[in-house]
Design a protein around this nucleic acid. Structure first.
Lengths: 304, 304
DNA sequence: AGCCATGAAATAGATAATCTATATCATGAC
DNA sequence: GTCATGATATAGATTATCTATTTCATGGCT
């Protein structure tokens, strides 16, 4: 097989010496490799003149067949080596992508300009053995034996609504939620627990509060912005809204959850260097503290 | 490059042990080669489970690209090895092919049944460096520095015509040829020399004898059979006609020539084993004595 | 005519690649 | 509990590949 590369070089350069230069070996090595290939094939490939070689008809026709194949192999290898080197495939839930990642992505690309990021926003759990995904951000309890899971942050949920909605519904205490609409997401269906913890409402009253259900946090947050109710959501997903005062936290109660956002990868597939950079960056960005909302005019109970 | 063959086998069999069996090495060798390829590419190709391997997405896509290329190389190599092994390309002048070789060809194929003979009947001188020809029979003086030339037989020319023609023209002595038509071939244009040697005709009379010219001996011989004249031809080309009494030799005079029929090959391209067999057979067949014609009723002068 | 550079072949020996042998591990079948 | 299986890791043996050197024939230059 090595002799095929030698043969290719010799055909292209029409000289054992030039082929030797190209392959960084001595002309003697080239001569020996060609001789070995001729013996293996049982065919003379080059007519040797003094200081000169000339390919035979057999060599020309053989080369026509194998040269594209060798080029295909070299090309496929190069592409795999290189594209793999800088491409990173990152999967994450759509809400997390839209609300947390997108606002930080420019920072990632500034800090690591050569990285070719492929982003997959999907709620479907990644199967690393079937999909060409390097890393994923997954919202779960961190326990899966097939994966290496690195915690970005534990989750917690807080209450958000517009200032107008809070004023109109007189949301001065959690008990006032009895007269509000509750916006619920599939991912964080914890209103009952929150009210049980932070209000004095009995279970019957809690069960009677109207609810609107959403399968994506993103949409529930949008509904809250439209004044349709109060949403129980992760503060990581409402940063933009809170800092722009589109949403406020009417109460200070935050409910800590068992789940969290984890960076996950297959525990038996090595990360490429570029993927390692992205992972490190994610860890660093996750370590930034979620800020309290300094602009809120409503009183709140003791913080978490 | 070796590791690509190993990779191919591992992908096809989905097992290092089975790949080892296929390639006649130990599973350890397979494991090392795959590990080496993974390091070279910078990509994990197989997920190792206990007693099991599983190709990654990268491996599948890489294999899709290189596997046809490896197959193309193997196929081209196998074809070159095998077809070359039993195929023999033999070139010879058309007249020689039709008149000497064809009647012996069955014997060649009987003695060497596996040989795949490719016959090229052409008057054009073979250029071994441009054409995929193994051997050629060439009519020349045997001297060409680029070729190995092996003499089959020296040439000589004799006079042939039909019995009817000889009787009608009263061809009892060579002098009687003054009243005949001479059939001349490009290859053996020696009537003047023959008559000068074997007749008492003066040069003026010789020049006045009508001639018909042919560019192929084959056609001159056919014309003689049709009673159009007497042909000066190689006895090697008239064996069928003489033995079947379609032509007779009216005189015994044979003119030895410098040229001969030679088996030629390129002096720097090795013959395949099959080509060597054909060459040997040609030499043996050429060594068979050309028989005198026992059926001729005409007296002849002293033999050659 | 003589000398030198060039590009090939041949060969001995050095170096690198590849393989085997062995030990170890985890799993599944019996 | 034992054994077979199929993988990994590693040391050392074997083979492939390469370098260094010598030789050869040719062509250019002086």
């Amino acid at each position: 097989m090595k002799s095929l590369l030698v043969f290719d070089a010799a055909m292209r350069s029409k000289s054992f010496s030039l082929a030797a230069d190209e392959l960084c070996v001595t002309p003697g090595a080239i001569g020996q490799q060609i001789h070995k290939l001729e013996e293996w094939l049982g065919v003379t490939l080059f007519i040797r003149h003094v200081r000169q070689i000339q390919p035979t008809e057999a060599a020309l026709s053989y080369w026509q067949k194998i040269q594209p194949a060798l080029e295909q192999i070299a090309d496929a290898s190069t592409r795999l080596k290189h594209s793999r080197g800088m491409a990173v495939l990152l999967s994450m839930p759509p809400s997390f992508a839209a609300k947390w990642f997108t606002r930080r992505m420019a920072n990632l690309l500034t800090r690591h300009p050569g990285i070719e990021l492929h982003l997959n926003a999907s709620s479907v759990i990644v199967d690393f053995e079937r999909e060409a995904v390097d890393l994923a951000i997954r919202y779960f309890n961190g326990r899966d034996t097939r994966l290496d899971a690195t915690l970005m942050f534990n989750d917690e949920v807080r209450v958000f609504c517009t200032l107008e909605y809070a004023e109109a519904r007189l949301l001065n205490t959690p008990d006032a939620l009895a007269g509000a609409s509750l916006l619920v997401t599939s991912v964080q269906p914890y209103w009952t627990q929150w009210l049980s913890r932070f209000s004095r409402l009995d279970a019957g009253t809690v069960a009677g509060i109207p609810r609107i259900h959403f399968d994506q946090a993103l949409m529930a947050i949008e509904a809250a912005k439209q004044g349709h109710g109060v949403v129980l959501a992760s503060p990581h997903l409402t940063e933009d809204e809170v800092s722009g005062q589109a949403l406020i936290e009417p109460f200070a109660g935050c409910l800590h959850l068992d789940n969290g956002y984890y960076i996950v990868q297959h525990n038996k597939i090595a990360l490429s260097p570029a993927a390692m950079l992205v992972k490190q960056w994610l860890i660093e960005e996750a370590g930034e503290k979620v800020p309290d909302n300094p602009g809120s005019s409503l009183h709140r109970a003791t913080s978490c």
